[in-house]
Simulated scan of single mutants.
Amino acid sequence: MQLYNTLSAIERAALIEEAGKERLTISFYTYAHIGNTTIFRNHLFIHWNEMDVLGRIYVAHEGINAQLSVPAENFNVFKAHLDSISFLENVRLNIAIEQDNLSFLKLKVKVRNKIVADGLNDHTFDVTNKGIHVDAEKFNELIEDPDTVLVDMRNHYESEIGHFKNAITPDVDTFRDSLDIIEKDLADHKKDKKLVMYCTGGIRCEKASAYYKHKGFEQVYQLEGGIIEYTRQVEQKKLENKFRGKNFVFDHRRGERISEDVIANCHQCGEPCDDHVNCANEACHLLFIQCKSCAEKMNNCCSDACKEVHELPYEEQKALRKGKVVSNKIFKKGRSEVLKFKK
């Protein structure tokens, strides 16, 4: 019984290109009590592998967080399988605004301690006691209210390329870093202000809204479906779009354009740019913003040192990496000292 990938990303990409069929990039999450996470993980892999589903899925005792690429022709079968699972029946599916057949190239279903790493160890905290969900129209009304505090629950490299106007954008590397910082900064407004939060697809706000209610905030709201669903509703209902720039996404696209505003800059030359790339040096792989001019000049690398390594013969690069742990810079997205114009 196959429970793991047998094809490399390169082999899978070739098969997708050869097939020439449309694929849909989808994300969803739900908090639920899952008993045997390993059995559930294997169940998903077996069925989704048969449907040619690809993506990154985290399963934990607290629920599931999934980002997927599904063949369009298999969507109804995939949806029927979700509906056959009690806690996934009619789960909201966020379908990407911009589609890319190569958004995911492997099926990875992993068992984790939590579906969103939050660093919380408070057993009295009930993640199901969440805040009020609001749609795009209500969200637009709320964020114009002077008694509202709007908070972006994403990380610095996400909000750097796009965010809602007047939002507080914490300068953090991880979701867990933002929870206590926001509580401390807003400690004097637990009763008199409306705390309104948003994130990419809703999963971080779901947990954050419950956490802040647990911490005594009385008026807690979250954008239903996150930026992805907001954009869809704005287009369908002809609402004013209050999001500026790009929405960062966690697949090979790295971003979806929501408005024509470019609010970030190239980390190397400072020119307006909001295209995230990974350093071409496999020993670095740093995520940063790079314009086309700098990409050509630097051979898709973040620094002269990485450029020198990347231009070596492949076997020499492998020899240099042998026995070395991958640099921590991969986790310090956009924070490297080699980037002159980083945030």
Rank of each mutant, 00 (worst) to 15 (best):
R92V: 15
R112I: 11
L88C: 03
E98Q: 08
L82C: 11
A96C: 08
I97P: 00
K110L: 14
I85W: 00
L107M: 07
S86W: 04
R112V: 13
I97W: 00
S84M: 09
K110M: 15
L105C: 04
F104E: 03
N90A: 15
A80C: 10
S103R: 06
E89Q: 04
N94S: 13
K108W: 13
L102A: 10
D83M: 05
E89P: 01
S86D: 09
E98K: 07
S86E: 05
K106F: 12
K110G: 12
L107D: 04
L102V: 04
L107A: 07
R92H: 14
F87H: 01
S84G: 11
E89S: 10
L88A: 09
A80Y: 04
F104D: 00
L88N: 05
L93C: 04
N90Y: 11
L102T: 01
V111L: 14
L105M: 05
I85N: 01
E98M: 10
I85Q: 02
F87S: 03
N90T: 06
V111N: 01
L105N: 03
K108E: 09
I85L: 02
E98R: 02
S84Y: 08
L107P: 04
K108Y: 12
V91N: 03
D100H: 12
R112P: 06
E98Y: 10
A80I: 05
I85D: 01
L102Q: 05
K106T: 14
E98T: 14
H81G: 05
L105S: 08
I85T: 01
A96D: 06
E98V: 14
N90S: 12
N90M: 14
A80S: 11
F104W: 04
A80F: 08
R92T: 13
N94D: 12
F104S: 03
L93H: 07
N94K: 11
L93D: 00
H81C: 06
S86I: 08
K108M: 15
S86F: 12
V109L: 03
F87L: 06
V91I: 13
V91W: 08
K106I: 14
L88E: 04
S84Q: 06
I95F: 07
F87P: 00
L107W: 09
N101Y: 12
N101K: 08
H81D: 02
L105D: 02
I97L: 12
N94I: 08
R92K: 13
Q99K: 06
S86T: 14
L105H: 03
F87W: 07
I85G: 02
Q99W: 08
L88H: 05
I85F: 02
S103F: 06
